[in-house]
Simulated scan of single mutants.
Amino acid sequence: MNKTFKTLAEPNRFQIVELLRNGPLSVGEVADRIGLRQPQTSKHLRALMDAGLVEVDPIANRRIYKLRLEPFQELDIWLESYRHIWKERLDSLDDYLQDLQRKDNHHHDEDKE
């Protein structure tokens, strides 16, 4: 997973992954959409492939790149543990805010008497 983060930390690679979320693309299509020359794009795609984030399907004389699901599923599993922590904290914050609101309402009720 550390290799995934290191690979995605490079902005062009991250942008390529974002493009490939919508479906497979050729090297030329990726290059055109992110505004890089084809050799630079190929280098980034190779790094993404080495990290296991994308795979390539050679079709005729074209190489079509697509995302691999497994590394992203691994990231999702890892992030799930943090979602649990945030949910607990948000629930605690919600309880605290409701308690403050009850105290404030009680205080206003006493002022009316």
Rank of each mutant, 00 (worst) to 15 (best):
K6Q: 11
L8D: 01
A9L: 04
P11D: 08
N12S: 03
R13A: 02
F14S: 14
Q15A: 10
Q15I: 04
I16P: 01
V17D: 00
E18A: 11
E18V: 11
R21P: 00
G23C: 05
P24K: 12
L25H: 06
L25P: 02
S26V: 01
V27S: 15
E29H: 03
V30A: 08
R37A: 08
Q38M: 10
P39F: 07
T41K: 03
T41P: 02
T41M: 00
T41Y: 03
T41A: 07
S42E: 06
H44E: 11
H44L: 00
R46A: 15
A47M: 13
A47C: 08
M49F: 09
M49K: 15
G52H: 04
L53G: 02
V56F: 02
V56P: 01
D57F: 04
A60C: 05
A60T: 06
R62S: 12
Y65M: 03
Y65I: 03
K66P: 00
L67S: 05
E70V: 07
E70F: 09
P71C: 04
E80N: 10
H84A: 07
H84N: 12
W86H: 14
K87Q: 13
D91F: 06
D91P: 00
D91M: 12
D95H: 06
L97F: 10
L97E: 11
Q98I: 00
Q101T: 13
R102G: 00
K103M: 14
D104N: 11
D104H: 11
D104W: 13
D104L: 13
N105H: 11
N105V: 11
H107V: 10
H107R: 15
H108Y: 09
H108E: 15
H108L: 13
E110L: 14
K112I: 15
